[in-house]
Amino acid sequence: MLRTLALLAALFALAFHTPAQAYGRYAHGAVARIALANASPATRAKVAAMLRQTALLQTPSCRAASPEDASVWPDCIRAMGERFSYTSPWHYQNIDICKPFDPASACKDGNCVSAQIDRQVKILQNSTIPQSEKVAALAFLIHFVGDLHMPLHAGDRGDRGGNDVKSSYGDYVSERLNLHSVWDGQLAERALTTPPSLERVYSAEERAELAAGTTEDWSREAWGASHDVAYALALGGDPCGPKPEGRVTLTNAAIEQAIAPARLQVERAGLRLARLLDEALDPTKAFTPERRR
Rank of each mutant, 00 (worst) to 15 (best):
Y169F: 15
S88D: 15
A136N: 04
Q53H: 08
T54H: 11
L14S: 00
R292F: 11
G24S: 07
Q125W: 15
A253K: 14
T18K: 13
P100N: 02
V266L: 04
L235V: 01
L5Q: 08
P289T: 02
G110W: 12
A70F: 00
L124T: 01
R44Y: 03
R157A: 05
P195F: 03
L192K: 10
L51M: 10
Q116D: 13
L187I: 06
R3P: 06
L51S: 08
Y23E: 04
Q257L: 12
L138H: 07
C240W: 03
N163T: 11
L5H: 15
P89W: 05
I97D: 00
A39Y: 11
R220H: 14
H143G: 06
H153R: 11
S203L: 11
I97C: 00
E290S: 08
K166T: 06
A204L: 11
A136D: 06
S40K: 12
A139G: 14
D217C: 01
A65L: 06
I123Y: 14
D184E: 15
Q53W: 02
A39W: 10
K122W: 06
A154D: 10
A254L: 10
N126H: 08
S61N: 13
A79N: 13
A70N: 01
Q186G: 00
S61L: 12
A55S: 13
K285P: 04
R268I: 10
S71Q: 07
A208Q: 11
Y92S: 15
A9F: 11
K285I: 02
C112I: 06
V145P: 03
V266E: 01
L187G: 03
Q21F: 12
T194L: 07
R83A: 15
L57I: 07
F101R: 01
Y172K: 08
V72F: 09
A115F: 06
Y172R: 04
A42L: 12
D282R: 09
A230K: 02
A55I: 08
E175M: 02
A42D: 13
V173P: 04
P74C: 09
L11P: 14
P100Y: 02
S174W: 06
C107M: 03
A225C: 05
N38S: 10
S105V: 09
E133P: 04
C107S: 07
S226Q: 05
E221T: 12
S181N: 09
A204N: 11
H28T: 00
R247E: 05
E279Q: 15
A254E: 03
L271P: 00
C62W: 03
E209Q: 14
R157Q: 12
K99V: 02
W218T: 03
L198I: 08
L57C: 07
D69N: 14
D102M: 02
Y172D: 05
T249E: 15
A262G: 13
R52L: 06
H143D: 07
G162I: 01
K122L: 10
